[in-house]
Simulated assay, not measured.
Amino acid sequence: MRRWIGALGAVAAALALAACGQGGAADAEGGELRIYNWSDYIDPELLAEFTRETGIKVRYDTFDSNEVLETKVLQGATGYDLVVPSNHNVPRYIQAGALQKLDKSRLTGLAALSPDTLRHMQPFDPGQAYTVPYMQGTIGIGYNADAVAKRGVSMDSWKAVFDPANLAKLQDCGVYFLDASEDMYAVALHYLGKDPNSANPADYAAATDMLLKARPYVRKFHSSEYIDALANGDICVAIGYSGDVLQAADRAEEAKNGVTIAYVIPKEGTQVWFDVFALPADAPNPAAAYRFLDFMLRPQVIARASNYTHYANGNAQATALLDPDVRDDPSVYPPADVAQRLFVTTTKDQALLREVNRQWTRVLTGR
Rank of each mutant, 00 (worst) to 15 (best):
V245P: 05
D183T: 15
D81L: 03
A287S: 12
L364W: 10
S157V: 09
F343P: 05
L47M: 10
R251G: 08
L74W: 11
D40H: 09
C236Y: 02
L102M: 07
Y176S: 04
Y226T: 09
E67W: 13
A303D: 00
T345W: 05
D209A: 15
E355M: 12
C20N: 11
V68L: 12
Q136E: 13
I94C: 01
D244G: 15
P123Y: 04
M121V: 08
I235L: 11
I265Q: 00
A318V: 00
H190E: 07
P334I: 08
L178W: 10
Y36K: 07
A16K: 10
I261R: 02
M184I: 09
M210K: 08
V356F: 10
D40Q: 11
G366Q: 09
G243D: 00
I42C: 14
Q271N: 13
L322K: 06
S223D: 11
N313A: 02
K150Y: 10
G137W: 01
A336K: 14
G140I: 05
E53R: 15
G9A: 12
S105H: 07
A96I: 11
K220L: 12
E268T: 06
D146Q: 15
L17Q: 13
Q171P: 05
K150P: 10
G21F: 04
L99W: 03
V58M: 09
L178K: 11
G152K: 09
F292H: 08
D116A: 15
D228Q: 15
Q136A: 13
D323V: 04
E32V: 13
N313Y: 02
D244V: 07
F124M: 04
Q350R: 14
L102H: 03
E225F: 09
R362F: 13
T345M: 14
P335S: 06
I265C: 02
D328V: 05
Y311E: 06
L178G: 08
D275H: 15
A305I: 10
F50T: 05
V332H: 00
L192C: 04
D323A: 14
P133S: 01
N37R: 09
Y308T: 02
V153C: 01
Q359H: 12
A214S: 07
R215Y: 06
L8H: 10
G240Y: 02
F221A: 01
I239N: 02
L352D: 11
T62H: 03
I42G: 04
A19Q: 15
A320D: 14
P335W: 04
V338I: 14
A206R: 07
V132G: 00
L230R: 01
A145E: 13
E67P: 03
F274K: 12
Y80P: 01
G21H: 04
L342T: 06
V363W: 00
V276T: 10
A287I: 04
P266T: 08
A339N: 11
D250I: 07
V83M: 10
A96T: 13
N315K: 01
S154Q: 06
K213T: 06
P115E: 00
F292P: 09
Q317A: 15
L82T: 03
Q359P: 08
V175F: 04
L342R: 12
W273A: 01
